[in-house]
Every structure is written in C-alpha cells, then in structure tokens.
Simulated scan of single mutants.
Amino acid sequence: MANHDQIDALTASHERELSEALADAYSELLAGFELNAIASSLDDIDPDHIRDQLELILNLHDRGVPEPFERRADKIADKLESFILAIAALAAAQAGHTINDRDAKLADARQAARAFGNHLVAETALQISAAIEAAIVGRGSTDARAEQFRRSIGLSPKQADSLEAMRLALKQHVATPRRLLPATMNTDGVRTPARYTRTTKTRPIIAGLRGRVSAAQLRLVVKALANADLSQADANQLLDRHAAALRSFRINAVAGEAMHELAESAKLAGWQTAQHYGALPANQRRFWQTAEDERVRHTHSQVSELNPQGVQLGEPFETPFGPRMNAPLEWGCRCRATLWPKR
C-alpha cells in the first residue's frame, strides 16, 4: 500500500503543477492579444479579410495558435512524460522490479504525454477559431466583440456560449434609458430618497437565458438586472471576473482528469513491464476499486460486480459504458486499478 500512497501523493502534486502550468500558458496567451488591433480588424464587411487580418494580428502559427503557446505545450508534455515514468517505476516496484526509462513497454505511456500536449494545442486552436467566428457575427460594437473574443479563450464551447448569453443580457439592460424617480414620503413620514430606475423588461431577458446558463449564472444576471446604476464598465468587469472563474474551473477540471488518466495508464505500463521480465506472474490480474464512499456513482460500483475475478493485465474491464482499459470511467471518476483485491 505504501507505493499506492506514493502514487497518490505524486499524482496530486503534479496535478497542482499542471493546473498552474495551464493557467500560466493561458495568461501569457491572453496577454498577447491586442484588443485595439482586434477591434480594428472587426470593422470590416468581408469575413474572409477579417479572418486573414486576425491570423496576422494574433500571430497564429501553422497549428492555429501563437508559437509561444506551442512551446508552453511542449514543456508541459515534457513534465508529464517525467511524471508517467515516475508512476510506472512506482507501479513496477510493487512487484519488486526496477524499470528502465527507455523500455519499449513504456512507449505507449510516454506517447500519452505527447498526446496531451498535442490535444492542448489543437483544442486551443479550435477555441481561437470559434472565438473569431463569434466575433465576426456577434452583436455589439467592435470593442465589445474584441473583449468577448479574449474572454472566451480557454473556455469550453458551452462555457463560451453561456458567457455570450450573459453579455447580451447585460448589454440590453445597460442600453435601457434610466429615469429619475422623485423622492417620496409615506403616511408615516418615512421618506424615500430620489433614485434612478431602468424600465428593463427583465422577464423576456431571463426567459431567453434558460437553457444557456447555469442556475448560479442566472442569479448573477438577475442581480445585475436589478442594479439601475449598472454601467457598461461595470458589466465588463463582471464578465471579465466570471470568465476568469470559468477558465480556472475548467483548467482545474482538465488537470485533474488528465493526471488521473495518465497515472492509471502509467501504472498499467509499469505492471506490464514487471510482468514481461518475470516479476509478476503471466496470469496476474488487476481489480477495479472505487473510492468507497457515499459519492460513488452506482455505475462505477458496478464495475467490480461485472469483474469479480479481476482482469488480465492486457485485458479491459467490462463496464456499464463498454470495455475500458483504465479509469477514469467518466468525468469526475475517482476509481483506480489495483493488483490485488481489497481484503
């Protein structure tokens, strides 16, 4: 069990490092966007020309992202490769075997680190491309669309859509004229001071948000719509803060999911390497283990029931979602594989 504890501790520390590395990569990327230049390029009627101009302004490399971001992704992949080798070594040590970093049996696990770096670049390129299209067809001034372009980088499509829905709702409220209500006094002599109000029709705005934003986001917008003094600058600050929170949440989720998947793949590679050299028997089996608490989903606990005798090292587990070689089973999964069933 000592090695399992070491694997868990190493995975947790590298998960934090990966979150920080991804946050730094996106911060550098966003800092390199010149909003004035982006806004100027959007002031054109030819979409193709806008795309060409933005490609130059954003310094997009062959793979659709700025070259510094590609270098960041390569460094992240290098760190992940070191992590994978360390986890594989700990897993092999469970069988009393010491692995060689260059062993051919580790090739697939090492490639997983490269795959993550490539996926990061490809996904960010898609985000930039989608943000460009949204900025071209979006509503509002060129400055507003340029700001929203930058906010959406690092977000999932669903997050970007919810942020755009919030922006349009706040834009409609800010555009509604304010009028001053005079001071009043009731029959008890209680005076209500003069105040500004807006005649924003909040009901259709809120109705239009349903299905596009979360309950928490809806509450945020409702609160903003109740503020008659809300300015465009205030709305921009609210959107900037919320975009940063969405990006941070997604970065942490991606890091957690990636480290879990890479750790499980590396463990299997370590065990298979140990088996190849005779440190584990040819019929060695591995077993599915849940976190064993009240948060475990029924479908995850079913995996142990579907594989009561475990599976061979090279065989997948039978799961309610089909055969799977390793955890995670789905988003947020905390399951893992072990060499021996729990006693």
Rank of each mutant, 00 (worst) to 15 (best):
H260I: 05
T319S: 12
H242I: 00
M1P: 07
D161W: 10
K267N: 04
L106D: 04
T176G: 06
K201Y: 04
A23R: 09
A25N: 00
R336N: 10
R150S: 05
G208P: 07
R151D: 02
A112I: 05
L220R: 13
L60G: 08
P316M: 05
T273F: 00
G278V: 04
L42T: 07
A21S: 13
W340D: 13
S19N: 00
R336I: 05
T124A: 05
Y277A: 09
T124Q: 04
N36M: 04
F116T: 10
A253G: 04
G211L: 04
R210M: 12
R210P: 06
H61R: 09
G154T: 01
S152D: 12
G154M: 00
H119K: 12
Q127R: 08
N307F: 07
N118E: 13
I50G: 10
P341K: 05
A130K: 15
E164K: 15
A216Y: 05
R72A: 11
L168D: 14
T184P: 05
K171Q: 13
S141C: 03
A274F: 01
C335M: 02
N186I: 03
N36T: 11
M185H: 09
G278K: 03
G189C: 05
N227M: 02
T319R: 09
A255H: 02
F69L: 11
Q275H: 10
C335H: 02
K201I: 02
L246D: 01
F249I: 10
N100I: 09
S82D: 14
G117V: 01
G211R: 06
A93G: 13
S301M: 09
A135V: 05
I251Q: 07
G256H: 00
F83T: 01
E164Q: 15
R219E: 12
E55T: 15
A216M: 04
A160L: 07
Q127L: 00
F116K: 09
F69K: 06
T11K: 11
G138N: 08
V303A: 11
T187A: 14
I57A: 11
M185E: 15
I136L: 11
R145I: 07
R179W: 06
V174M: 01
I7A: 02
A258W: 01
F149P: 07
L80S: 01
A215I: 10
Y196H: 10
A25M: 02
R241F: 03
S141L: 03
G64K: 07
N283A: 12
N3K: 13
A89C: 02
F83R: 01
T319M: 07
A243Y: 00
E264H: 01
A165P: 08
K75E: 15
Q275M: 11
E330G: 09
R167H: 14
A21H: 03
E147G: 10
L163H: 01
R139P: 06
D48V: 11
Q309K: 12
M166I: 14
E17D: 14
R167T: 12
P316Q: 06
M166V: 09
D188K: 13
G270C: 00
R179H: 13
Q94T: 10
I205E: 08
A327L: 07
R151P: 00
R334D: 06
Q217F: 04
R250L: 15
R250Y: 11
P193A: 13
K171G: 07
A2F: 12
R151C: 00
I251D: 06
T98G: 08
H119A: 13
E123H: 12
A337T: 15
L18W: 02
L239D: 00
